[in-house]
Design a protein around this nucleic acid. Structure first.
Lengths: 213, 213
DNA sequence: CGTGCCTTTGACCGAATGGTCAAATCGGCA
DNA sequence: TGCCGATTTGACCATTCGGTCAAAGGCACG
């Protein structure tokens, strides 16, 4: 062995754990926790079922590991929203980062969607505490921008929800989007549309599009 | 028996079939097809498992019946978009109708979401044919409005996607929305926000919010 | 009140599920 | 090369799964 006795992470351990998580992400994101089977995960990872359980104590443990790894990176784009930046740049930057995540990590988005659809039994508490704190924090920033007249007076929470909904839609409903559009890559057009939509939505001015005479 | 020999739908048949579909909607919308179990559906419907299979040939048949019943009503709001109406009224009306459906039929929205997340194995073909035809049709209408300068020049397909994403988000991610917002009913604020967003997005004028000098 | 069909269910089946365990194999180091 | 822990697996287990079936129960009508 190479590593020390305390830090017991062999090369082969890292590789197999990674393969299991990769396979688990595939299966869980498509069928949810209850719909996924260990045999399927093992098969996709190229390991036998007992071998999978040698690296993870249970099906639940694989799922938990995936969720934990996900939550870390999932909120990073929102955390990067800078209170001292230019409002429009900050919000459009957030939209772009989230859209790129939907394009590059669609399975992670679907895994999250599945967990929420099931009622968030495992991450419900985190949603009501950690997530809520961060969203409230960023919402306050956005509210400040609105109060200063730098952007339109929109409800910040729903603005954030809308960014989640619009960007994750291109990951979660990818099959539907491509079925309707045909074969072409939806993301370039999606980005152009979302930039238009958010420039218009947050531009300072009267609350509605029907301009006053 | 009361009904004729040909029209064999007893009162009790209608009641039990309805109870099974109701229970199936609950379970399938939460756990997806593979994650749902007949025992759970039977228990929730107040019937024994063999009795459930007396009314539906298989688990698959219950799921199929739900999907078929869903597809009929799911696209009705889009079909109601009137090419001869006032563009802003038509689009905002569509948004409102879809939002009401998310509020009143969240389980149906989640059932649909689950099917799409699984890769739409059962309705994939419909998406690429019937749905696509209808969306293309409505997209042409919207494109015409844009060409006439009645609304902004937005890509119509992505405009429709955005309406789906924003409205269904309040059904599919209801748990998350409520966890972040607290106990209050999100829908009144959601409607106000969406009306603002779409008024701004489709208002005629320059493509972006950064006004020219 | 009895007959015939609709409805319900207990018992059961084979397959798949998550998980266990002891034994076999592997891989690196002395 | 031989050793020892890390790794892998075949066999197995209890439970749950979707589904079957024959028998029992219920209901409306003559």
């Amino acid at each position: 062995m190479t590593g020390s006795a305390v830090e017991g992470t062999t090369r082969i351990q890292a590789r197999n754990r990674q393969a299991i998580l990769e396979a688990g992400l595939d299966v869980f994101s498509q069928h949810g926790f209850r719909g996924a089977t260990l045999d399927q995960i093992a098969g996709e990872a190229g390991l036998s079922k007992p071998n999978v359980l040698y690296y993870f104590a249970s099906k639940e443990a694989i799922y938990a590991a995936l969720l934990e790894r996900l939550l870390d990176t999932w909120l990073a784009p929102l955390a990067a929203l800078d209170p001292d930046g230019e409002p429009e740049d900050e919000i459009l930057g957030y939209v772009r980062r989230k859209l790129v995540m939907s394009r590059d990590y669609p399975r992670e988005s679907r895994l999250f969607a599945n967990e929420i659809l099931q009622g968030a039994p495992r991450i419900g508490e985190i949603l009501g505490t950690d997530l809520r704190v961060m969203v409230d924090d960023k919402a306050a920033v956005i509210r400040g921008w609105a109060a200063d007249g730098k952007i339109a007076d929109v409800e910040p929470h729903h603005l954030i929800f809308s960014i989640w909904a619009l960007t994750q839609h291109y990951a979660d409903y990818d099959v539907q989007v491509r079925a309707v559009l045909g074969g072409a890559d939806p993301f370039p057009q999606a980005e152009a549309f979302l930039v238009h939509l958010y420039r218009r939505t947050i531009a300072p001015g009267p609350p509605s599009g029907r301009e006053r005479t």
